[in-house]
Design a protein around this nucleic acid. Structure first.
Lengths: 125, 125
DNA sequence: TCCGAAGTTCCAAAGTCTTGGAACAACCGG
DNA sequence: CCGGTTGTTCCAAGACTTTGGAACTTCGGA
C-alpha cells in the first residue's frame, strides 16, 4: 500500500512483478484430438451461424477471421466469439501469422474420431 | 352469465360450447420429413442426455417414455421435455397405445435427408 | 516512433434452455 | 365408477448463451 518516495532509482523488486513468461499471442489453444467430445461438437455446429462457417471452410481453404465474420454480417467481437467456440470444440484450427489468423476446418482429426461427420455437416454424401 | 333455472331439459345452446373437435391425445405432432432442419437436429442431439436417448434407441427398438427417463435418472417432467424436443426436431417418432407412448428413432427419414448422420450419432462406422 | 489494421477480451444486457414440483388428462382393470 | 399408472402441461427459478460496443494488444510499414 505505502509507495516509497521517489529515490531516483527504480524500486528494487519491480522486476519480480513479471516472473512468468506469458507466451501471449503465439499460443492458440486447441484441444488434443483424443479430447474431442461429440456432444460438444454437435452443440457447437448446431448454431446456424457456426454451421455456415463450417461450410465456408468445407473446401479445405484457410480463411481469415475478418472475411469469415463479414460474410455473415457479424461485428468483429461476435465473429471472434463464434470462431473461438468452434476452435475450442475442435472443429477448426487457427494459425497465426503476424496479426492475421488463418482458420481452417480440422478435417483430419474430425474424420479420425467421428468418421462421416464432416460429410454430414457439409452436405457431401 | 345468467344460468337459467333448471327446467329438466338441457340448455338449448350448451352444445355450442364445444364446436371444435379436439383430437387430444390421438394427435402427436411430428414434423414432415421435408421440414427437418440440420441445425435444429444438431442442436437437439448436442445435449448429452438427448444423445444418450438416441443411443438407447439405436437398435431400432421402441421404448416407453418411462424407462427412457428412468435409465437416465430423470424426473418424469424432465424426461417428457427432452423427448418432446427430440420428437419436434424429427429425431424420434412417438406412437400412442392406450396411456403408453412408444418412442423410436426416426432412422428412415433421417437417413434419407442426412445420410450418415445416424451412424455418426450412434458411433457405428 | 507513430499509425492503422487485425483480432481479442471485457462486460452487461437480453435471450434461450433446463429443471422439477404440482396439477392435470386419459386410459385400464377390477 | 374408482384407484392406479402413464405421461403431459404449467410455471417459475436458475443456468447458460449470445450480442455488440469499448478498450486493448500486437504487428507491420512509412
Amino acid at each position: 500500500m505505502a509507495v516509497p518516495p521517489s529515490t531516483g532509482a527504480p524500486p528494487v523488486d519491480a522486476p519480480r512483478a513479471a516472473p512468468v513468461v506469458v507466451p501471449a499471442r503465439e499460443t492458440i489453444r486447441h484441444p488434443p484430438k483424443e479430447a474431442l467430445d461429440l456432444s460438444q461438437i454437435l452443440r457447437t455446429v448446431g448454431d446456424p451461424l457456426r454451421l455456415s462457417i463450417v461450410r465456408m471452410l468445407a473446401d479445405g481453404r484457410e480463411m481469415l477471421c475478418g472475411p469469415l465474420g463479414e460474410a455473415l454480417g457479424l461485428p468483429k467481437s461476435t465473429g471472434s466469439y463464434h470462431l473461438r467456440l468452434l476452435r475450442e470444440a475442435g472443429v477448426t484450427r487457427t494459425r497465426q501469422e503476424g496479426t492475421l489468423r488463418y482458420v481452417s476446418l480440422r478435417r483430419d482429426d474430425l474424420e479420425d474420431r467421428f468418421p462421416g461427420l464432416v460429410d454430414v455437416l457439409t452436405g457431401a454424401q
